[in-house]
Amino acid sequence: MGNMNKLAAVAQIKWLCMSQNTAVVIGPFMVIGMVWGFKILYSSFGPDGKLLPVMMAMLLNLGVTMNICTNGFLMVGTAIAEEKEKHTLRVLMTSSITGMQYFIGSILYPFVFTVVINFAILWVSGIDMSQVSVPVFFLVSVIASLISCVIGMIVGICASTQMNANLIGYPLMIVFMMVPILGNMSEGLRRISGFLFTGVVTQMTDCFANGMEYKIEALDIAVLFGELIISMLVFLVMYRKNGYEKD
């Protein structure tokens, strides 16, 4: 009960901090706005003002992977870096909050947001929902969002300032976002993309956009769970070495 109390308090602190950070609040709406804008733009190329499947695939890939990467890598990472910068992280850690409570409290809202906004992107894109397997989309969305939040925690551990978090987070974002998107243009990138969790997400949205049935394969499951485990292990090793803040 006491632990839940502390967890709820950390999550609430994080929520208040994030909700007062304009860049963080605008981010998800920008992704939704971008999807909506491109939908209108791309529609003009299609027959009867409808999106071509290839355009729909591009739209979904861009929206979903951007949402997963920005919310996870940047929202989580910069939030921890901000606490370091403002000297509030140590205050929290010397107020009886455990590392695990801080971890869960930090990723709770970004994780929920990411999953919810992924569904919002589906809706805004105007995709025929009969082409979408909602349980599969939910499962892949949840795992991918979790991985990105854990990577965000790693970014937060490495960064000492918000600027620093952006410097670390953006290159990661470009790799995880652009490699799957550009995979359609290069065979090499497509192969690499198959081993990225965001690559699994784009494969799935490609199938939905093209009206094909998406069957999650063993390699996809291995990539998703493998990268989740690897990111958790990297986080744990770094946390055990220095905690959230190196002395």
Binding site: N5, Q12, I13, K86, S96, I97
Partner: peptide
Amino acid sequence: SDNSGIYEKMTVWQNLNMFAKIWR
């Protein structure tokens, strides 16, 4: 500590209330 921070965007009340929740 000499550099104990506060949550500057929160109100004074929120700053204390959050920790009141932690310590019940």
